[in-house]
């Protein structure tokens, strides 16, 4: 149960206020989910390097996890470029050129992975958008696009790793935020598990992310993967997905979960409620659109 937000600046300029825009949008719909807040942010990338974010907790627990991770990096042939500990998260940039899926499953046994990607970084923790900003300095984040999520935990616990966005475990740079419930979760998950995919949570949002990433890894365009997801997933959902260069949405046939969007030459912004979109343009009445039931679309950065 939650509120979602996403923004993509259409031009190649990576130096945009993505972090601040998402904080504003999430603050606008914080009433939808006061338990935890998360961000998926896409910044600059360097060829051959991947950014990794882990939940490691604090104190000795964190020290142990970071130690284990450094061992796994070495075992897997990943060369550490830089790392740091922020709040309960550990951020590492490594040079790695092997099989990312195997690598990600290996590091998952050392600590809880929040994201892996060339430009993606997921930051999530308990508290409001401003709380998470205080702990992780989101508002200084410059980038091209990103997703955000505020969560009211209903069935699972209030833990940072149970919050959104979810990374598509094993797939570089794919993230998702989701409002709703996938009712054929186990059926879909077992189908993917039989094909060798691992799931690190029991959260249905991770399933959507892996489902889409799997399609894309087979060469299916994101837009087509979104189309099939609407028929393959049962339940009520409105979700946003992002890749290194794209942002997309899908909405179920019952239209039970809200979603509204605003687009101009510069950006596309999508959120659960218009109040979030209006935060980007205070005092202006926006020409917004509500996507119809069973619809989907994508936008990518252009040159």
């Amino acid at each position: 149960m939650c509120g979602i937000a996403g923004i993509l600046f259409k031009h190649m300029d990576i130096d945009r206020d993505t972090g601040k825009a998402l904080i504003d949008m999430l603050d606008g719909c914080q009433h939808r989910g006061p338990d935890s807040t998360g961000f998926a942010l896409y910044g600059d990338d360097h060829p051959g390097q991947i950014k990794m974010r882990f939940y490691v907790g604090t104190g000795n627990e964190a020290g142990d996890a970071i130690g284990r991770l450094r061992e796994v990096f070495a075992e897997q042939g990943a060369e550490l470029v830089e790392d740091s500990q922020i709040g309960s998260a550990y951020r590492a940039v490594v040079k790695f050129s092997g099989d990312l899926q195997k690598f990600s499953y290996a590091v998952e046994h050392a600590a809880k992975v929040m994201s892996i990607g060339e430009s993606l970084e997921i930051v999530k923790d308990i508290g409001t958008a401003h709380d998470v900003d205080d702990g992780y300095d989101i508002h200084h984040f410059r980038g091209t696009h990103g997703l955000g999520h505020v969560r009211l935990a209903t069935e699972s616990d209030v833990k940072p790793e149970a919050g959104h966005p979810f990374w598509a475990t094993g797939f570089s740079d794919v993230a998702i935020v989701h409002n709703g419930q996938i009712t054929n979760y186990w059926k879909m998950r077992r189908r993917l598990e039989r094909r060798g995919f691992e799931f690190v949570t029991d959260n249905d949002s991770e399933l959507i992310a892996v489902y889409l990433a799997d399609k894309m890894s087979q060469g299916v365009p994101l837009k087509e993967a979104l189309r099939t997801s609407i028929d393959d997933m049962d339940g009520t959902f409105s979700f946003l997905v992002s890749t290194k260069d794209e942002i997309g949405y899908a909405k179920d046939h019952l239209a039970a979960k809200p979603m509204i969007m605003f687009e101009n030459d510069d950006l596309i912004a999508i959120a659960s409620e218009e109040v979030s979109l209006n935060r980007l343009f205070p005092g202006k009445a926006l020409d917004t659109r509500e996507p119809p039931p069973g619809s989907y679309n994508t936008w990518s950065r252009s040159t």
Partner: peptide, 27 residues
Amino acid sequence: LNPDARHHIGVGLIHPVTVTVRGSAGY
């Protein structure tokens, strides 16, 4: 003024007056 799609504007009003919202309103 500046409604900015905020929720609950004018709820519970029971008098025959006109409320003009200069912009968008929320839920």
